[in-house]
Structure formats: C-alpha cells, structure tokens
Design a protein around this nucleic acid. Structure first.
Lengths: 191, 191
DNA sequence: CAATTTCATTTACATATGTAAATAAAGCTA
DNA sequence: TAGCTTTATTTACATATGTAAATGAAATTG
C-alpha cells in the first residue's frame, strides 16, 4: 500500500485523511501468469495498481492478430481507461505475462471519492493528462521511426523487460513479426 | 458563436448563465492560408474553435521531416492540448491549410471558469476523454493496418478534405511518401 | 497569355518487412 | 533425464514502401 501512496503523492499531494479513504477502496489480488485483468467483451469496472509482475495491454483484430499497446511494470496504474470512461466494452485487453500482485478498487468508488476529495480528483486528472502526453509521443515514434529505432527506445524504456518476456511479445509491441525482430537483433549484435 | 454553444452542449449540457460567461471569453480571429495557430518553440496559451477552414496539427523532427497528426475541420476545438496541460513548449504545431475563421480564448480564463461552473468543467473533462479514446483508435490503425486501408479510413473520416488539400499533406497524415500514396491511388482507380 | 512555380505521377532501383516453412535452442513436464 | 512443447532464428521468396530523379499536369503570377 505504501507504494501506491507514494505513487499518488508524487503526481499531486494528497492529504492524510484523503489517503485513509483511498486505502479502504483497494484490496490485494493475485493474477497468475496468463490470467486476464481485463477480458474480451467486458466493460471495465475496476482499476488496479500493479505491485509486482508484468502485464501487457493489447488489441486483437478480427483475424486474431494481436498488437501489444503497452507493458505495465511494478508500481503503475492498470485498467481499461477508455472502457471505464465510455462505458463501452473493452477493445484493449490486459493479461499477466508473469505472476502478478495487484491492488484492486471499483472505479465507481473512485469517482465517488472524487466528489469528496478534490485533492484526489486532481491526481486523477493529472494522471489522465500524463497518459495523453505519453500517447502523443508514442504515436509519433510509431509513424516516424523505423522498427530498429523503436526497439532501442523499448530497451531504454523497459530495461528489465527484455529478459523477462518472450521476444514475440516485444515484436508485437514494436508492430513487427518475430522474424523481423530477430533480424534487427542480429544486425545489432553483429557490430 | 451559436455553433460553439451547440458543440459544447452536445458534449454535456451547460446552463444558459454558464454560456453567457463562456461567450465573453471568445473573440473572432482570422488566419490566412499558411499562417500558424501554434508555432514552433512556443508554449500554448490559447484554445480555439474552428468556425471555417482547415487546420493541420503536425510534428516535425530534427531532419525537418513532418508528420500530420490530425486535420481539424469546421466546428472543432483546436489548440495544443499537451502543451497547455504540461506548460512545456509545443512539439505539435498547427497551421492553416486554407483561410480560417476561429474563435479564440485564453486557456487560463477557461480553467478559471472551471472553478465557477462545474457544468463547464464536465464538458472539458468529457472532451479530454473523447480525445483519449480517439487516439487509442488511431494508434491501433497505424500499427495494424497498411497504408491503403488507412487511406480508405481517411476518405471516410474526412470526405470533403481530399479535394481541398494537397496530396502530400494526406500522404504525411498516412505516414507514407507522396510517391506511395500515388501508387495506392492508382491501384484503387484501376479497378 | 507565357513563364514560373507547385504539385502529382511515374520510373528504376534499394531496403524494410511480411509469409511460410525449416531448423535450432530453450524450457517444461512426466 | 528424455521427450515434448514452446520459442527464437534462419532461409527463400514476395510485397510494401522509400529515395531520387524525370516527367507531366495544374495552379499561380507577372
């Protein structure tokens, strides 16, 4: 719990009594490798905080081809934001790539608390803004940079991850096939 | 002004007296073709509502290569959202592709009004959420679809635009060269 | 209207990436 | 540990896209 408090406080300061209320909303839950935090067809209801483990957020098209939109690592908020705010079924799913421990809260409870604690609502808004900026950056990377450059950015952004998850998950994040990632890796190791 | 009121009301209802205050913040401004609403290096201060004309939002990298992130058409909000919320210099610029008439307000005045009118703040929040969802959709398109499919989506999304702006602007939106767009267009017209 | 500039298309070639199948390596399980 | 399954790499070929330069068409301007 301590880590969640630290995380929220770093975004925007929250009062101690606000934290007392927040704490009550979250409870610990375990996800084993391969299990889903958000599944196909569901409408998102919960929000989480990843205490340990790795989760991927991904999209799957009609032909079953998947694209990894994002990897979540320790001490980050998880949950289907678009689905939460639109109340439409998820099109982005979230799955544990390793065993995970998460803190889970009902999103409806969170928004209720927004009404009572403006300092907490500010955290929520800033978080959304931060995600927006991140997304803008990634969109530009995807269009303007080639896969080898994006691979280097991935390694910088997630230094630990490369050892922990399969190559084909990384390829999917980069928007290329495992074949192509293999070629890129060979190219870099040859020098 | 009427159109702006309609636009905001459609997102979330605003009271008449709230609208009276909003109206005071906006004033009309003209942009001639080629002029910038947001320029390089600046930090965004203003927000606008496009009454007529076309504006492109684009990114330019170190080598001067540009990527059109978005086209704004009539009756849409414009402005450098990321820069407004982070107070960092713009990395996305906005330029008129045709002569434009816009309504302009100081963003600081807008946020001040949020404090007074919760119904207006709700509009702001919903708008941000809507943008977020749009972005998620576009990210998926870019990674998962090939240029010819994205071209068809562009034509559906902006039916009028193809006649009004140069092909190379469209190519830049699709993340390809004018050469490649030309090939794609030929492919479609051959059938 | 002629000249100039801007834009779109085409051409030829190079490269990045995809697909499908084979092989190699690593990890898991009975 | 042996055998099975999953994952990673390699190979051969096809295709999408890029680059650079030439050409053609359209728009603009003096």
């Amino acid at each position: 719990m301590k880590e969640l408090q630290k995380y929220l406080n770093a975004i925007s300061p929250i009062q101690d009594k606000t934290w007392d209320r927040i704490e009550l909303l979250f409870s610990e839950k375990k996800l084993t490798k391969g299990a889903y935090f958000i599944e196909e067809g569901e409408t998102a209801k919960q929000i989480g905080f990843l205490q340990s483990g790795i989760i991927r957020a991904f999209y799957r098209n009609n032909e079953g081809i998947e694209y990894n939109k994002h990897f979540f690592i320790q001490n980050n908020i998880i949950g289907g934001y678009s689905s939460l705010v639109t109340s439409m079924p998820n099109i982005i799913f979230q799955q544990a790539l390793t065993d995970c421990v998460i803190l889970v809260a009902q999103y409806a409870e969170i928004t209720k608390l927004y009404d009572l604690c403006p300092d907490f609502e500010r955290v929520g808004r800033k978080l959304a803004e931060f995600y927006f900026v991140e997304k803008e950056k990634r969109e530009i990377e995807i269009v303007l940079l080639e896969a080898d450059k994006r691979y280097l950015i991935f390694r910088k952004e997630y230094p630990q991850l490369e050892q922990l998850i399969p190559q084909y998950q990384i390829a999917s994040y980069l928007g290329i096939t495992p074949t192509q990632l293999s070629r890129i890796r060979r190219k870099f190791s040859e020098r």
